[in-house]
Simulated assay, not measured.
Amino acid sequence: MALTDDSGFRATTFVVIDFETTTPSGHPPQPIEVAALALRLHDGAWTETGRSTCLIRPPAFAPVTPADTAQTGLTAEQLANAPTPAQALGALDRRLTPGTPYLLVAQHAATEANVIHHQAERCPTLARTNLIDTIPLAKHLVPGLPNYKLDTLMAHFGIPHPPDRHRAPADVDVTAQLFLHLIAAADRDPRLDSLAALFKTAGRTAKANQPVQAGLFDA
């Protein structure tokens, strides 16, 4: 059976997500932009079921630096009147429909998982959503590349390089294209014949869903 014939896969909405962040000393990365693109396989064709993008005003301890601006093009002036993290991530969280099976999709999903985990109070549903990482999936399906950076994978699959690369909306679009290329390749791989097999190969359990270990000295 092909992956896209699996009932669990067909029932899942895949939400490609990307954050741009600042990285303040002594604190975890703080989001300054988020974009998300929801995809669902329906009658053999992929359908976009939702899209969201939002600038985010960082807290005072995490100002936009010249290095951040050089990377993303975003400036402190652009973000000065943007929604707060609570507003932006709360709005994104409310777009997730209760009872719908979701998986987040990200390039190097540990980055997105870490941002979401540290913002979990503002986006509790998002924080409980597990992830698919395109890097281990690409390593499984396309062995032998010199590296598995997004630009390398884009070149391998012939995905055009957007002029605003390193902005969240552009990176979500190219990551979504990469994901669809990888799923097409996975459909030809007999080892990836179910959603469970896909998650075993490339899944990442959200920190909110991981078991809590008792403290070493708990009574």
Score class of each variant (00 low, 15 high):
T53C: 00
A60T: 14
P58C: 05
A60M: 11
Q30Y: 06
Q30V: 12
P59I: 11
A70V: 09
L55M: 10
A70S: 12
P66I: 14
L37R: 12
A45P: 01
P24E: 10
L74T: 06
T49Y: 01
P66S: 14
L39D: 05
S25L: 15
D68N: 15
A45K: 13
T65A: 04
I56P: 00
F19A: 00
T69S: 12
P29R: 07
L79E: 07
W46S: 03
R40G: 01
H42T: 13
L74F: 10
I32H: 04
R51S: 09
L39I: 04
T65Q: 09
T53W: 00
C54Y: 02
T21G: 01
E33H: 06
Q30A: 14
L79N: 10
N81F: 02
D68R: 09
Q30S: 13
G50C: 09
F19S: 00
F19T: 01
C54I: 00
T72F: 04
T65E: 12
R57L: 05
P58F: 00
A80D: 04
H27Y: 13
P24F: 10
L55T: 02
T47P: 01
Q30P: 03
A67I: 13
L39E: 10
Q71L: 15
P29L: 07
T69Q: 11
L39K: 07
P24G: 11
A36R: 04
E20H: 11
E20N: 06
H27G: 02
W46F: 08
Q78F: 02
